[in-house]
Design a protein around this nucleic acid. Structure first.
Length: 806
RNA sequence: GCCGGUGUGGUGGAAUGGCAGACGCGACGGACUCAAAAUCCGUUGGUAGCGAUACCGUGUCGGUUCAAGUCCGACCACCGGCACCA
């Protein structure tokens, strides 16, 4: 009766329809039950369709979500669309289709593909960042940021991607090139909306201590925030009242500062232009530096260039000595104060610069020969040539000098961060309009909440411009509006928000996605938040993951959400590479299409393979044969129906231990994302089932419950066919019996001097002492050590016996 | 340079300090078949041997230990992130 072939093509759509009809995975706000919020990064619905990387993350958390349902939680496992962005806009331009239309089509395609894979998403909570009902609240949060002084417009040198014709955030520039297109990035000064993420640098750092993120995510965020402790020190400019402030992490080397360097953009040049003897030369240098792109500027790393500011000298506050001032582009205006004290003896860059221009090098830290090479100091170095610091270990001298500077009013302790404010303007069409009006009389006027959403005007042309103006600027009847304040003629802001805006808070909207009164109700937020488990890509660590933590910390500070941190736990999946081990891409021709896979082996086998292929957090090449192997495994599972005695609900006596072990291991492994070993265990279990030739209903039930989170359709179908009660998706997760985790007798290895010579069957309960006393007496053990002297004997219960002989 | 990660068969990868190579892929041999596919059974780290077996083997070199892929020290290679950040 069960001889029908395993046919995923019929059973998968069948169960997907049942789950949908029964609303099996609809998240319910029920304070009487524990909640669990699983989150995967919502996809960008690109025209290329679903990538095999999406299901890796989705299946991993689908397993957790389905297991949590079985464990009696209210589960929220939502899905949505991060749909604003350049590829859609570019496609729309190239094909003369409105981006909204392109987005709709792509979303339909993605939704269809995801549904075929049987994820337990609550589709009733879908969000779409391009829906005005959604971006109304993105704009609303922006206005809150503005209200609290965290959004400001500034004339800024920005990273301009020549080919995308768009300004980029620092986080979007990778190795001097555009993160998206790899094109050239140049510096352009533009008036930009900025978000003051730097105000949250310390909170973003501190918050990491309170959450369960994998180490490399924490490390990368810390690295990006780049906290460093030191002192700001004021150097007097000789003959003026002016002070030149620098930041240093090595106040202990202050006596060794033999010159100073300011960045080409430093205001001191203009302020003291009358005193600079070689102003022409200095201005030339500044000109040159300004014309270099960031890429060129970093490329020139090795050769230090610079010009002395002739006629200007500073006083070293420690030595009282007169030191020259230089300008050089190795000093960045955007970090610290844009000026440094140069200690060539103990800093590599300063040393290279001093050597290039013949500046004096003084040793102030013992050890090394500073004329030959810069020396940063070792554990036991002490200060030398440093007045009151002499003889002090340099680490201690930092504190002594900092105290001195603060006491004398020459400087103070200071913490600096590498993190920069977030460039929030984009000069493109397909993004959230920034809800701001510029009035010649009233200045910057935010839109009132009642006027939100400010919708994108529906227009025929949205090509980007080379001038750096948004295409919205050309739509005069949209741009020209009366000022909400004074009623006079005013203009709308024409820049749009970056792609990262909508994704900075989408996990909040999922809690209450259809709310028209608020971004989400407080009740829903308090119940569902924080996200219990968030899985996503490493590439978002210093972008989305940092941005969204910032927004959430802010919303917490203004009392709109309960906890400071949005994500309790963050894990990351490795990339799936092509069969040739290279990154999948259309141009390499190694892309695997999920639809083709589902057609060939079915969604369950596809999901199974993605979880089995290797360690979840590591990059791994695709193997078509490996995927087919997973299908073979499911075929074997299917055929178990032919050998099951379904009336017997007990476990087979011979399999009792293995089943119990499997229940424990599979459950543990799922929680640790060791999906590959969980599946290996189930394969071993099925092998044991097949070896035995016949199994009980109890045996099969246990297997189905364990396998169900990975391969839900086949398990649901077998469950039903065999007449097991209810639906499998509402069965409790199986528990194991402590008493049956080990067999009555276990095989141990008998080693002689660490080499395995024999095997014995012993009771797993035999303790260390008994084993060491009785086992060496056994004749088969005696035979191994005949003629030798037993020096030592180590017995590890249930494992091995090691005999040390001479 | 700094931070993080990874080195194990032909291959993807297993292994709380306790029998290295689980599980899968591939390969080889066999059964079934007119034949093939599918399925099933067996073999599969290397070297030597007909064989039982012996020796070698987890990037390299050393150390700790009765016992090291695992711990410690020094290095090598590769991958990812940051980088003229004072």
């Amino acid at each position: 009766m069960h001889s029908a072939q395993y046919n995923p093509k019929t059973i998968e759509p069948k169960w997907q329809a049942i789950w949908e009809e029964k609303q099996a995975f609809k998240a319910v706000l029920d304070p009487g039950k524990p909640k669990y919020y699983c989150l995967i990064e919502f996809p960008y619905p690109s025209g290329a369709g679903l990538h095999v990387g999406h299901p890796r993350s989705n299946t991993a958390l689908d397993i957790i979500a389905r297991k949590r349902w079985m464990e009696g939680h209210n589960v929220l496992y939502p899905i949505g669309w991060d749909a604003f962005g350049l590829p859609t806009e570019n496609y729309a331009i190239a094909n003369h289709i409105h981006p909204a239309r392109v987005t709709m089509d792509n979303i339909s395609q993605f939704r269809r593909q995801l549904k075929r894979l049987g994820f337990s998403f609550d589709y009733s909570r879908e969000v779409d960042t391009t829906d005005p009902k959604y971006y109304k609240w993105t704009q609303w949060i922006f206005l809150k940021l503005y209200e609290h002084g965290l959004a400001y417009k500034a004339q800024m040198p920005i990273n301009w991607c020549v080919s995308c014709k768009i300004g980029l955030a620092n986080e979007e520039v990778v190795g001097g090139a555009c993160e998206r297109c790899g094109g050239e990035v140049v510096r352009r000064v533009k008036s930009q909306w900025m978000l003051k993420i730097t105000d949250y640098a310390q909170k973003l750092l501190d918050g990491l201590e309170t959450v369960d993120f994998i180490d490399r995510v924490k490390a990368q965020q810390r690295n990006w925030i780049g906290r460093s402790e030191g002192c700001e020190v004021d150097f007097a400019i000789q003959g003026t009242d002016r002070k030149l402030r620098v930041f240093t992490t090595r106040p202990d080397t202050l006596f060794g500062a033999t010159y100073m360097v300011i960045s080409p953009e430093h205001p001191l040049i203009d302020a003291e232009e009358n005193r600079i003897g070689n102003l022409e030369e200095v201005r030339d240098y500044r000109e040159q530096a300004a014309h270099k792109s960031d890429f060129e500027r970093t490329e020139m790393q090795k050769d230090k260039t610079g010009v002395q500011l002739k006629g200007l000298f500073a006083i070293n506050p420690a030595t009282g000595g007169e030191i020259p001032l230089w300008v050089s582009d190795y000093v960045l205006m955007s970090y610290g104060t844009g000026a440094i004290m140069a200690v060539p003896g103990h800093d590599e860059r300063d040393w290279a610069f001093a050597k290039a221009f013949g500046l004096p090098i003084v040793q102030v830290i013992s050890g090394g020969d500073v004329q030959e090479a810069p020396y940063v100091g070792s554990e036991d170095s002490v200060c030398v040539n440093s007045g009151f610091l002499n003889g002090l270990p340099w680490q201690e001298a930092q504190q002594v000098m900092a105290d001195y500077l603060e006491r004398e009013g020459l400087g103070k302790r200071k913490v600096n961060y590498k993190l920069r404010d977030w460039v929030f303007s984009r000069q493109r069409y397909w993004g959230e309009p920034i809800p701001i009006i510029h009035c010649p009389h009233c200045g910057t006027v935010p839109l009132a909440e009642k006027d939100l959403p400010l919708t994108l005007p529906d227009v025929a042309h949205y090509e980007p411009t080379d001038s750096g103006e948004s295409p919205l600027a050309a739509i005069t009847d949209w741009v020209n509006v009366p000022c909400p304040n004074c009623g006079g003629p005013a203009r709308r802001e024409t820049d749009t928000m970056p792609q990262w805006a909508g994704s900075s808070w989408y996990f909040l909207r999922y809690c209450d996605p259809h709310n028209d009164e608020a971004f989400a109700s407080r009740e829903a937020l308090d119940y569902w938040m924080p996200v219990d488990w968030y899985n996503g890509g490493m590439e978002h660590t210093t972008l989305h993951l940092l941005y969204s933590r910032f927004w959430h910390l802010f919303l917490h500070d203004i009392g709109l959400v309960k906890a400071p941190e949005p994500y309790q736990k963050r894990t990351s999946h490795g990339m799936i590479l092509g069969e040739n081990g290279e990154k999948m891409s259309k141009s390499r021709g190694n892309v695997i299409n999920p639809d083709v896979l589902v057609d060939e082996i079915g969604a369950d086998a596809f999901r199974l393979y993605e979880m089995f292929m290797g360690a979840f957090d590591q990059a791994i090449p695709w193997s078509m044969n490996g995927a087919r192997g997973c299908r073979r495994f499911l075929d074997r599972v299917w055929r178990l129906q032919e050998v099951v005695d379904r009336s017997n609900h007990a476990l087979s006596p011979n399999l009792k231990v293995l089943v119990n072990q499997s229940i424990r291991k599979v459950g543990d492994d799922y929680e640790r994302m060791k999906y590959n070993t969980a599946i290996a265990q189930m394969m071993a279990l099925v092998n044991a089932f097949c070896d035995q030739g016949s199994i009980t209903g109890g045996d099969l039930k246990a297997l189905l419950l364990l396998l169900y989170p990975v391969a839900p359709h086949i398990c649901a179908e077998i469950w039903e066919t065999l007449g097991f009660p209810g639906f499998i998706h509402r069965q409790p997760w199986p528990s194991f019996d402590e008493n049956f985790l080990v067999a009555d007798l276990v095989e141990i290895a008998v080693q002689v001097n660490g080499k395995v010579r024999e095997r014995l069957m012993v009771s797993p309960d035999m303790d260390k002492q008994t084993g060491e006393e009785t086992l060496p007496q056994l004749p088969e053990v005696q035979a191994l050590i005949r003629g030798k002297k037993l020096v030592k004997c180590v017995f590890v219960p249930g494992r091995l016996l090691n005999l040390v002989v001479k």
